[in-house]
């Protein structure tokens, strides 16, 4: 099955340590420094939105140059092959893929950007002079640190992020079924003196 990263929103404090770890890891590996996950703040929920590494990945299906491929670990983008067409970003149902590029204005701290559009412009339409963009998406850090596992999961100070793979999902399902069974028993008006194992 596909392995992906899930979040427990009640643990998320919106601090962005996941973004920092993602950016640092990829940048040091020579990949785009743009974080692969995004923090989303709704009135009642704060959560990092991550790629689900879908079984039937639409991003992979629509890529016209086969720059997106499935490896044993994840659905990954070949940044060199990507032509920045943004089709993958349009079809992603989670908003988990978007274009990014490295600005030449940022070299050696002499940044002087010349914005051409308001910041509110959709990232799919935004461009900046001389910057070639390519798609960035979560690779579970498998392209540069397969042993270490996803850096965001490791870095999260409240342990709000989890790797969901066949084992952990199976366990989670069992826990949910147990909880449902207990709730059912309570609903039926039965009480129990049994302590939790």
């Amino acid at each position: 099955m596909n392995t992906f990263i899930a979040i427990e929103p009640d643990r998320c404090i919106g601090c962005g340590t996941c973004l920092a770890a993602c950016s640092h890891g990829h940048r040091v590996a020579g990949l785009q420094a743009e974080p692969r996950l995004a923090l989303t703040f709704a009135p009642q929920v704060t959560a990092a939105v991550t790629c689900h590494q879908c079984e039937g990945a639409p991003c992979l299906a629509v890529c016209p140059v086969d720059a997106i491929m499935r490896t044993d670990e994840a659905v990954v983008v070949n940044e060199q092959a990507c032509i920045g067409c943004k089709l993958c970003a349009i079809v992603c149902p989670f908003g988990a893929i978007h274009p990014a590029g490295t600005s030449t204005a940022g070299v050696a701290g002499i940044a002087f950007e010349t914005p051409s559009q308001p910041r509110g412009t959709s990232p799919l339409l935004a461009w900046s002079i001389g910057v070639y963009t390519c798609a960035v998406k979560c690779d579970l850090c498998s392209t540069y640190d397969p042993e270490g596992g996803p850096h965001c999961v490791r870095a999260c100070p409240t342990n709000a992020l989890f790797v969901r793979d066949a084992t952990t999902l199976g366990d989670a399902r069992k826990d949910k079924m147990k909880a449902a069974a207990t709730a059912n028993q309570i609903m039926m008006g039965r009480s129990t003196n049994l302590k939790e194992a």
Partner: peptide, 20 residues
């Protein structure tokens, strides 16, 4: 053993990056 983003990523100013 935990760090937040500043602890984790706030070290390279020492190297005089001249970003700011």
């Amino acid at each position: 053993g935990e760090l937040c983003l500043k602890g984790l990523s706030g070290f390279d100013f020492i190297n005089d990056t001249k970003i700011l």
